[in-house]
Amino acid sequence: MRELTCPTILDAIRAAGLPPHGELILTGDGKLQRYRVEGDKAGSRNGWAVLHSQPMMAGAFGSWKTGETHTWCERTSNPPTAVERLELQRQMKAAQEARAAEQLNVQTAARERAGKLWALAHPATNAHPYLQRKQIGAYGIRQLRDMLVIAARDVHGDLHTLQFISADGSKRFLTGGRITGCYFAIGRPVDSLLLCEGLATASTLHQATGRAVAVAFNCGNLVAVAKALRYKFPALRLIVCADNDIQTKGNPGLTHARAAAQAVGGLLAVPRFTVVAA
């Protein structure tokens, strides 16, 4: 949780990169409000904010899509008293609890919608343009209209959300669904299990090695999925296959993959690229 110093909470929301699409009115009543973040699809309400007016203007906000949370407090010439600080702490705790409760409601609704859409979808075939372009098979995935549908489940097999991949390769998730710790599995592990970020990489690994592979969907979810898989398969050899993002600052693919391998005592596999000078 990061505190931002801005004149108003709306300024802080914009500074954090979560500006509302349209008007967002926060009256200071302490009630959590959901809103559509600028750039998100129509109908989504991934943003949330809560503002208290007493003992001073203070609040919190964030995004269920990115998982980030920020706090804000009005800066005045008079610092808060000890009693006011205690009240602010109580309010921030209440805001966290309200956020958690609302997030649970959002995720429950997404889980129910995911189940309905998954039931409507039919098994995908290798004829889908995305699969043909990537030269991979349709391993356990489904198709709804022209979109591939990939199930994200927890270690107990419960479906939480869906990823959709269009013919041109653009990807999106079902709004509000839980991603953390959820994955898509290809094959059944015998003595080892591979873990990577995306479907195309996972399918390619499975085709090349014949081994079971888990898809974490993004690098930020690698550690959570690795820990979940270690819990499910305590004796299995886990091999984290990194996306080597050599052209991205900080190489997030390799950084998160290394952290995931270290967290579960697993192995790390890193692709090497030959850089050709221009």
Rank of each mutant, 00 (worst) to 15 (best):
A263K: 04
W118P: 03
R45S: 14
R188H: 08
K116L: 12
I239T: 13
V270L: 09
N46Y: 03
A95R: 07
R85W: 15
D158N: 12
A109R: 14
Q54I: 02
L229A: 10
A257E: 05
A98E: 03
I9D: 03
T204A: 15
K249C: 02
R34D: 02
P271T: 05
S192E: 13
R113N: 10
K116P: 03
W64Q: 05
T71R: 13
E23H: 05
V225C: 10
T180K: 15
A101F: 07
Q33D: 00
Y35K: 01
I246R: 00
L131N: 14
F273K: 01
D146S: 05
W118E: 04
Q163G: 12
G176V: 09
I179K: 14
R99D: 02
A185T: 00
A58L: 13
N218G: 13
H128N: 12
G115C: 09
S203D: 01
G30Y: 14
L24V: 09
P7E: 12
R14M: 00
G47E: 05
A242S: 03
A212C: 00
T108G: 02
A226S: 12
G187Q: 06
A151T: 06
H256C: 06
L24Y: 07
L131M: 14
G176S: 08
L26W: 09
E197R: 12
A100V: 06
T201K: 06
P80I: 05
D191H: 10
A109W: 06
T5C: 07
A100G: 03
K41T: 14
K93F: 08
R178E: 14
A260W: 01
A42Y: 06
R75S: 03
Q103Y: 00
L117Y: 08
W48T: 09
A263R: 05
H156Y: 11
E23S: 07
L238S: 01
T209V: 04
Q91T: 09
A127N: 08
A228F: 00
I150F: 12
H52V: 05
P234M: 09
S53D: 14
A16S: 11
P234E: 13
